[in-house]
Nucleic acid binder design. Structure first.
Length: 190
DNA sequence: TGCCTGATGTTCT
DNA sequence: GAACATCAGGCAC
């Protein structure tokens, strides 16, 4: 792991905050490049009742028990994929859910894929996976490699990071584990 | 503008 | 067999 990704081996919460402002470059199956900025994240780890890793390793969540910097993809509600970046030390189940991204390049591709334009194309965990065409093919993918690369950007000032409670979960929903960039219009609603 | 609900499959119990 | 880290469309106000 390159030194610039070392922050991922800290706690999931540290990784979630540090990932804000970083970029992802997605090379689509057709060869087009889409570049997005991460604007909203959530942290999960095995001490958290809402986490998939809370009850120990299973076939599904083994990526989050592996080394940091890999993609954990899961399917939910019968029609949506969600994407996480594994964090922490190997053997400890932790990860960061990507909740919203801001398109920087390839916005036309995103709008074509999603069928809609503007903020609503990528401002939710199920939306951004569809926009970036993330599915089980990318489960366990190394984020240092194509077709989905994590690009580290300078750390944001703490004053730009907003910390709130999580959304759309039933357990430990009051935990302050959701983070987003202050004032960014691509952050999900509620 | 805001609540309610249907869609729909993987995963774990 | 039930839960689920969601989304979008419809209808009421």
């Amino acid at each position: 792991m390159p030194a610039e990704l070392d922050f991922l081996t800290g706690t999931a919460t540290q990784a979630a905050k540090r990932l804000l402002g970083c970029e992802l470059i997605r090379t689509l199956p057709g060869g087009q490049k889409v570049r997005v900025k991460i604007v909203e994240t959530e942290s999960y780890d095995q001490t958290d009742p809402a986490s998939h890793t809370y009850n120990g390793p299973t076939q599904r969540n083994q990526v989050m028990f592996g080394p940091a910097g890999f993609l954990y993809v899961y399917f939910t509600y019968g029609m949506h994929y969600c994407a996480n970046i594994s964090a922490g030390q190997a053997g400890f189940g932790a990860g960061v859910l990507l909740r919203a991204v801001e398109p920087l390049e390839g916005q036309d591709e995103v709008e074509q894929i999603r069928g809609i334009a503007g903020v609503n194309a990528t401002n939710g965990p199920g939306k951004l996976t569809k926009a970036l065409q993330i599915d089980f093919d990318l489960r366990g993918h190394n984020l240092q490699l194509e077709p989905l690369e994590l690009i580290v950007r300078p750390e944001l000032d703490q004053s730009q990071i907003v910390t709130t409670t999580r959304i759309g979960i039933s357990k430990a929903a009051e935990d302050l584990r959701r983070f987003y960039i202050a004032g960014n219009k691509y952050v999900s609603k509620k």
